[in-house]
Structure formats: structure tokens, C-alpha cells
């Protein structure tokens, strides 16, 4: 789920950047620092939308770096258990397939793939129904439900299922379902 939230962060800036572009530098550094990061609490920081305030800088003893407390608004993405996501399959193997929904990696185990879909190895490994009407392979688009999440310091890993109504393939790499 996406959230638009306020976050705070103390930015350290090298004194060489002091000058007319200080603010820009700070912002670009902030963006560089936080975008794409992941925290267990908020999930992935997708984009910094606005910088609310930049507080008074404080010179660090010894280094000359200056710490600015910054408050900024950003879009975060955090997957939740039970959430339905649309994702792109990145890898298929006999244990299931990996899919990505933005920054989140989701693994769909073969236990969580409908029983009528079986793994087909070969050049392009895939999960296929016996009649071949549904075929999940790399780059397929899949709608799935998250059944579990594991939050590490730097990533959120999810386990998804497509064993439910209205879940499964929504688009194939060639286009069409």
C-alpha cells in the first residue's frame, strides 16, 4: 500500500557544499539518500515529494560537517499481509516463481500456485495449466495476494499466493492474457 507521509532525517553535509546551492544540495542529497531505501516501519521510500522544513544546521565537532534536521514528505510503499498486488514475474523455477511489484520482491511458492498449474521446465520455464490456456513465465503480469512478509533492514520480502479467486495471470509478455 502507498502512503504519503512526513518523515524526518538529519542530513550531514560537507562544508564544501556551503554556498548558494546549499539548499539544492541538501535536497538532492536527501533524495539520493532516502529514495529507494527501505525501513521495516514504513516500507520503501518511493519518492520524496516535498521538503517541508530544513532546520538549523549544527556543526559537528571535529569533522566540520553540518547536520541539518530535515522534514520531508514522501511516498512510501509498504506491502501488507492480505494485500492484493499486481506484479511482474522475474524468475520461474520449480519451487515457484519470483515476482516484483515495484521494489518489493514476492515469492509465490508452488504450494501457493493452483494445483492445476504445473511447472514446465525448458527454455522458458513456466507454470502452465494442462490445457495450456494459462501460462506464467518470466515477464508475465500476475495478480497475487500477499500472505506473509519478512522485513529485513534493507528489504521487504513477501510470499504471495495466486491460489484464490481472481488471482493469477493478468497479462503475458507478448501482450494479452
Amino acid at each position: 500500500m502507498f502512503f504519503h507521509i512526513y518523515l524526518e532525517r538529519n542530513m550531514q553535509l560537507h562544508p564544501r557544499h556551503f554556498g548558494p546551492h546549499l539548499r539544492d544540495k541538501l535536497i538532492s542529497k536527501l533524495i539520493q539518500d532516502v529514495e529507494g531505501t527501505c525501513s521495516g516501519r514504513h516500507g520503501f521510500v518511493v519518492a520524496v515529494t516535498a521538503v517541508e522544513t530544513i532546520g538549523q544546521g549544527l556543526i559537528r565537532d571535529g569533522t566540520g560537517y553540518v547536520t541539518f534536521p530535515m522534514k520531508y514528505q514522501c511516498v512510501v510503499f509498504r506491502p501488507f499481509k492480505g494485500e492484493i498486488l499486481e506484479s511482474v514475474v522475474t524468475m520461474v523455477n520449480k519451487m515457484g516463481f519470483f515476482a516484483e511489484a515495484g521494489p518489493v520482491q514476492i515469492f509465490v511458492s508452488n504450494h501457493l500456485i493452483p494445483d492445476d498449474m504445473v511447472f514446465q521446465s525448458g527454455d522458458v520455464p513456466s507454470y502452465e495449466t494442462s490445457d495450456g490456456s494459462v501460462r506464467i513465465q518470466k515477464d508475465s503480469e500476475v495478480r497475487l495476494k500477499i500472505v506473509g512478509t519478512r522485513v529485513d533492514a534493507t528489504e521487504i520480502f513477501c510470499i504471495g499466493t495466486i491460489k484464490d479467486d481472481f488471482l493469477g495471470l493478468i497479462g503475458n509478455p507478448g501482450g494479452g492474457a
Binding site: G96, S109, V147, G148, I159
Partner: peptide, 22 residues
């Protein structure tokens, strides 16, 4: 439940952690 994160405390896989898929 499926999706729970668990730790194995006995048996051959003792010590492993993972998420339940089935």
C-alpha cells in the same frame, strides 16, 4: 497459518527460519 514466519527448533532443520507456504 500460511505466511507466518517461524523458526525450526528441533529436527534436521533445526535453527532454520522461514515463512510458511503450506
Amino acid at each position: 497459518k500460511t505466511g507466518d514466519h517461524v523458526k525450526v527448533v528441533a529436527g534436521t532443520h533445526e535453527g532454520a527460519t522461514g515463512m510458511i507456504v503450506r
